[in-house]
Design a protein around this nucleic acid. Structure first.
Lengths: 202, 202
DNA sequence: TACTTTTTGTGAACGTTTTCACAATCCCCT
DNA sequence: AGGGGATTGTGAAAACGTTCACAAAAAGTA
């Protein structure tokens, strides 16, 4: 459920604004959906609201964090220290949400040994042992498509069970490993498609 | 239809490999779906295959490019010359697919006037006139969430009808303007969610 | 306490997407 | 020229997701 993340984002805004309670209607309009949708989504995980009153903002935010696994922090390995890797390393939303990049790896000897914000870039050569050493739980892969499958096999060997993949390649992983793809070319193509058939809004 | 892009990617691989014809079955396994799905998707736009034989690889690739609006090239404006902007500027998949970044804009006077691969970074101050001058059709926005809505209003004023947004903010646009969001924190949260409930693969 | 207002939680209706199943079609082989 | 094997295109069925509508609950008011 991807919408849960959106609700959480709205709830955190409301939390900062000091709002104590919120209705499904209000959450819906902020999240770009309907009140019924919000209630159905939430009711799937429990009964968090009070009838006639709405949802307690801090309470619901806490529950969503728990459901989404965000009440703890995650140890993330970044493989690929190119431009995209650099951009993600600096991305403030990751750290704010409890995703801590604990190691950066690259194949290029020029980059290995350099330091990024206190983290030394390690050689991808020793990937398995590095990932075990830093107890990484999630891998972000910003490596070229030609080598990404090999890297995937190795991070899976190293015990990683969740992968965020930026290469435009369909990854093959054993059962029990979750992969999420970010394919920016595809997003542009969706725009191209919409323009080509005469953008009709959304 | 997002799957069409995936099919096209497979077809281009097959094209390079010199394969003349492909079955829905083959396309399905490469695209991570089913043969029936492939046929339904394609039949929605026309009848491109030959019964008993399959689809002609070059022909179908051409049709998909036409449908997706990729048989021409698109003029793209990049607003926000931070790390993410730099990563996207270099991203080879954009240019390969006919998305040409024709201008880069930023708010920071330190950056304005610098040159990126032959393109001078312009001041976001003159956004409307720059975008008209270069005849930009698509805008990629890698600006902070606090200012993205203002930038959106301005690029829309400048005649842009398709926006790729990297800020974790829901944009409000008039009808006729298409927005596509890339929200990387959300993708990580989906992994966190999966891990939290015990990854069961995909 | 009884009445009113508000808003949740949820079964049922509805709509959309995916899968199934098979007749229609095409190529190849003899 | 005719039969066999392969594969598409597509209605019908099934699965899935969204919206509707309303009873159940909570809180304020008198």
């Amino acid at each position: 459920m991807r919408r849960l993340s959106l609700y959480l984002r709205s709830l955190e805004e409301l939390e900062r604004a000091g709002v104590a309670t919120v209705s499904s209607q209000e959450l819906a309009s902020r999240g770009g959906t309907t009140a019924a949708q919000v209630r159905k989504d939430l009711s799937h995980f429990g009964s968090f609201g009070k009838r006639g009153l709405g949802y307690g903002v801090p309470h619901l935010a806490g529950e969503l964090r728990r459901i989404l696994g965000l009440s703890r922090s995650w140890r993330v390995a970044l493989v690929g220290a190119g431009r995209m890797g650099a951009a993600l390393f600096e991305y403030p939303n990751f750290r704010d949400r409890g995703f801590r990049i604990v190691t950066v790896l690259d194949q290029d000897p020029e980059k290995v040994g350099k330091e990024w914000g206190g983290i030394v870039i390690r050689d991808v050569e020793g990937l398995e042992s590095v990932l075990r050493e830093v107890r990484a739980e999630i891998a972000i892969l910003t490596v070229p498509g030609e080598v990404v499958q090999e890297v995937v096999d190795r991070v899976v060997d190293a015990g990683i069970r969740a992968i965020l993949n930026f290469a435009p390649v369909r990854l093959r992983v054993p059962p029990g490993v979750v992969v999420n793809d970010v394919n920016m070319a595809l997003e542009l193509e969706a725009l191209s498609f919409a323009l080509a058939r005469g953008a009709r809004g959304r």
